[in-house]
């Protein structure tokens, strides 16, 4: 480890930002991958891996990834929900790696909902 200069403190803060925002529960976007038994058998683990590699490639530090149970719509699994802060959550269905990539680039990074993959807007109450 080299001796630190004052500027280096900020570099370390930047490098650790993702770690810290995860622990402080602060994120701009929350991505939930649905991992019920049906979700997993339909390939939700692969979707999770795809989401994580998208986040890694983008270098973004303000995205929180979590899992949740069955979304209740087993025939359309695997599914995930994207929730940009202060916007309604969007559920996406019948996912694969390619779709995840597009949703990530469009919705997560730019804020444009990918309507053709979306199941519905909002959570159950909004349906």
């Amino acid at each position: 480890m080299p001796r630190l200069k004052i500027e280096d403190l900020d570099k370390i803060v930047e490098k650790q930002k993702k770690t810290m925002s995860l622990r402080e529960g602060a994120g701009r976007v929350k991505i939930t991958v649905h991992m019920g038994t049906c979700g997993i058998s339909a390939g939700a683990r692969k979707i999770m891996a795809a989401v994580m590699s998208c986040v890694e490639k983008s270098g973004a530090s303000d995205i929180v990834i979590t899992t949740s149970g069955c979304a209740g719509f087993c025939s359309r699994e695997p599914m995930m929900t994207v929730e940009v802060i202060e916007q309604a959550p969007i559920k996406y269905m019948e996912l694969d790696d390619k779709k995840v990539g597009r949703i990530f680039d469009e919705h997560v990074m730019k804020g444009n909902i990918v309507e053709e993959y979306a199941l519905a807007l909002g959570s159950e109450q909004a349906l």
């Binding site: 993702k18 770690t19 995860l22 994580m52 986040v55 890694e56 929180v64 990834i65 979590t66």
Partner: peptide, 12 residues
């Protein structure tokens, strides 16, 4: 060292 994994983890 958690911070050293380039892609990070989704859960701590």
């Amino acid at each position: 060292r958690v911070g050293e994994r380039p892609g990070g983890y989704r859960m701590h």
